[in-house]
Each structure stands twice: as C-alpha cells, then as structure tokens.
Design a protein around this nucleic acid. Structure first.
Lengths: 168, 168
DNA sequence: CGCTTGTTTCACAAACTTGTGAAGACAGTG
DNA sequence: CACTGTCTTCACAAGTTTGTGAAACAAGCG
C-alpha cells in the first residue's frame, strides 16, 4: 500500500462540472451526450475506455458509441487501441480543440454570406432596410476578422508563458 | 400615379433571406420564430404591425405574439403604439442589437464560471485533468476579454466612417 | 473454430419544442 | 356600455431529438 497523502477526487463535484459544462455547450447547439462524454474524458487523469465512460455517466453503450463517433470526427477526442485488448481508450488531444473551434469555425462566415444575399435582395444599401442589413453584415465581418487574429495572439501568449505546442 | 423609376422589391428573394438568416440563428440556439419575425421587420422599410408580420410569414397571430414578446424583452425589437389605433407597430431599434448581443452577452462568462468549478473539483491544476480544464478556462477568459475590447473598436471604426450613434 | 467480451447499428419510446386554433382580455368608438 | 378589432393566453397536435434495449457484428482466446 503506497503512502499516498494526496487528497482524493471528489467524484460528485467532478460529475457536477461535467454535467454543467455539457449543458452550457448544449445551449449553443452542441449535442448533449457528446458534451457529457467530452468532459468526462477531459476530467479524467487517465484515458478511459468506452465502458468506463458509460459507467461514469450511467448511460448505455449505444449512447457512448454515438457520442465518440461524433467527437472523434472533429478531433475533439482521440481514440487509441489498447495493445492486446479489444478495448479502445479515449483521451483528449494534445492540441486543444476549443481554440480551433472558436477561431476557425467560420461561425460568422455563414451570417455574412446570408446577409450579403439580403443586401442584394434589398437592392443595395439605398433603402432603410438595405442599410440595416448591410450594417449587420459589416459588423459580423468585423468580428470574424478580429477572431481570426485572436487565435494568433493566444498562441503567442501561451508560447510566452512557457507552453509547448503539442499535436493531437 | 407617381413617376417612380426605382426597381421594385423582390419579395421572394427577401423572404428567402429572412428564412435563411432565421435558420442560421436557430442553429446557434436562437428561437426559430423569433428569428423569422426579427428579420422580417429588419428587411421592411417601414415599421410593421403584428398582423403584417403574420401575413408575410404566413403564421398565426399567436406565433407573432410570442415572438415579439421574446424580442422586445431584449431590446431587439421596439414596440410603438399607433396613435388612434389599437394596433402597435414594430421596428428595429436605432442601436444595433447585434453589437450588444455579441460583445455583452457573457457567452463565455458562463463557460468560465463552470470551468472554474471544475478546476476546484479537480483539486487545482496539479493533475493532468485539472491542468486541461484550467487551460480551457484561461482560453475562454482570453476570448471574453478580447471580445469586450472588440466592441469598443467597432464603435470607433463606425464613428470614423461617419456614422452617428443613435439610441433605440 | 466456437466462445467470450466489447462495439456498432437500428427501431422504437419518452421527452421536449414549436406553432395552431379557440377562447379570453383589453381598449377605443359610437 | 355594448361593439369591434387587436393582442394574448392556453391546451393540444405535429414534428424533432435523444437515449435505450436488442440484435448484429468483430476480434482476441482457448
């Protein structure tokens, strides 16, 4: 028995964090179960198997299967076969997914394109309606550009505070 | 009959814009009908009555009622009683709602708070899990700060290109 | 090879969302 | 003070989403 004086994990509080974070993500369109799985793995010190994820969340294997398929598709989760076992392990990628998610998402790109169509349909900016839509488009355009630049500043800041830049 | 050579509105295309924009907003959690009403009013040159909105969208008065209640709550739509009539008119506010929506929304604030709870639950940043969650929190914190500053830059830019700063 | 264990797929059930019609409330008007 | 036109509320129906259990599938092991 190792003489281990570290405090033990408060699984209850951790689970609360997982559920809250997943819900916050669900509120902005992220699939519910995918969020729960994602943050379960994130809050584990070791990579987890599908069965372990299912246990911790008390959900079916089917639900886990669907969620990890979704998550690995976008590189938010990495699947690792375990040598000499049928099980796979799941872990967080080394490159933080949220950075790419926020900065590369093109969230506003969609708004901009549609708003552009609106300006055309409204015969340019010479009407009150056209002017309003054009202004909205310009704002989203501005935000999109700013957020593109933001990713660069974040990486610079992290490098300055002594973080490496690991790959997934 | 006025000798008016302006091209006429292509209502079909305009409606397409309304529906697309509403759907794009719905995809990020905005109520579907509220979006349709919002962009219908936005693409009208004159303020509209509830009945007119209902006609254009071919939806019930009940649906319009619910949507405008939602929208006026957040100042995205302004309700104006019409003198000598029981009808109200709805128009876009002078202060563009999207600016406040994006910059003041505290979208990331929520993530930050929850992630903070996660770091606590994970006993600080001394574990792999705690470190991961803390890094995510720091990123959202960074983004939130940047977006706060972004609003200021946008207003400065608009002022420079000769826009006034009207109130709602 | 068949057995055992773990994963994926699929049809379905439960829960939730969303918009409707109908009834009710409200405010000007004659 | 009833009438009329407008807006709001409410119960419900239709459509979605979401996760489950069961069955099919896959892969190591004896």
């Amino acid at each position: 028995m190792p003489d281990d004086h570290r405090p033990v994990r408060n699984e209850e509080e951790i689970h609360l964090f997982v559920e809250r974070m997943a819900m916050a993500f669900a509120d902005v369109g992220f699939p519910r179960m995918a969020g729960r799985v994602l943050f379960t793995v994130m809050s584990a010190d070791e990579p987890l198997t599908a069965a372990e994820i299912g246990e911790r969340l008390e959900v079916s294997a089917a639900a886990v299967s669907g969620a990890v398929r979704y998550l690995t598709q976008f590189g938010m989760l990495v699947r690792e076969p375990v040598k000499g076992s049928r099980r796979d392990r799941y872990r967080m990628p080394g490159n933080p997914w949220y950075e790419a998610t926020i900065t590369k998402t093109g969230l506003y790109k969609n708004f901009i394109d549609i708003a552009n169509g609106g300006v055309d349909a409204l015969l340019g900016q010479d009407t009150p309606a056209g002017e309003r839509v054009a202004e909205m488009r310009d704002f989203f355009l501005f935000v999109q550009e700013e957020i593109d630049a933001l990713g660069e500043r974040w990486r610079a800041r992290r490098a300055a505070t002594g973080h490496s830049d690991p790959a997934g």
